[in-house]
Amino acid sequence: MNIQTSKLLLRHQLLEGAKRRISREPYRCFSCSIRHAQHQSQPPKSPQDTPGTTHFGFEKVAEALKEQRVGAVFSSVASSYDTMNDLMSLGIHRLWKDHFVRNLNPGRNPLTSLSASERGWNILDIAGGTGDIAFRMLDHASTINNDAHTRVTVADINPDMLAEGKKRALATPYARSPRLKFVEANAEKLDMIPDSSVDLYTVAFGIRNFTHKDAAIREAYRVLKPGGVFACLEFSKVNNSVFDALYKRWSFGAIPLIGQLVAGDRDSYQYLVESIERFPSQTEFRDMIQEAGFLVPGQGWEDLTGGIAAVHKGVKPI
């Protein structure tokens, strides 16, 4: 068997696997595809950024450009996303999302709700594009807490991702219910969301794409009710050095290669692994959350799978 046929065979198997999963699983995206990042540079030596520029992976670009480029990433809604996501996390990202939602325990049990006026939670899922987190939230509220009132607003900067989410919503019981809403919005400027109106703000695999993470966290603080919770699921820093070395080798070496193989798009996946590598460490990100005024539970975060991903939370004080 020559290399060409084995490549084809692998590709075939992957697509088959992906198809089977698609029928059961809603759209999942934490990988990001970009066609514009043509040349990769080495990680910048100095941590000091030139004013007006920001990171696009390890590449430095003008801030205005980043938004545009990230937009382009998510506009190319490639059919290989699901396959890639599963390959990259070995399928674990689904467990992470399940854990994320279960742990937040969304929904009010009607048996113990004290006042009838405060029914259900108002959840805002930022960068929620495909509705992946939103559907899980609504399922959990309905089946675990018997709460038929909790509602989710999915906000994303990219209309194509929102369109994909709406399409996928048709396969859920929430498609035309008032419990699910889609809005086009930049996380850094949520003007359409009133102050102190949200119980739970979630962002899963989205925040590392934001140009101004601190601005996004401040917006989260503004829209949350006192006592409301900010929760973020994101790739993070592996905390065991041996595991870290292995994972870096895997992510920097294998992932772009698989990207090339499956999607024919090596550069996009190069951007993905680099943007993960550039994201602040668990402690740095916890400090950013505290600086915005949030109280953090315990140490402030929970590592998942040895720190490949982490959940950070903050509670807005009353």
């Binding site: 049990n109 004290l114 006592g227 409301g228 929760a231 315990g298």
Partner: peptide, 25 residues
């Protein structure tokens, strides 16, 4: 139970969701 926690949060002037402040529930 998480119900007792949620009721406690309510009594203390917090929301159901504020029980997320307790990392181990």
């Amino acid at each position: 139970t998480s119900t007792a926690l949620k009721l406690g949060a309510g009594d203390a002037g917090y929301l159901d969701v504020s029980t997320n402040l307790l990392p181990r529930g």
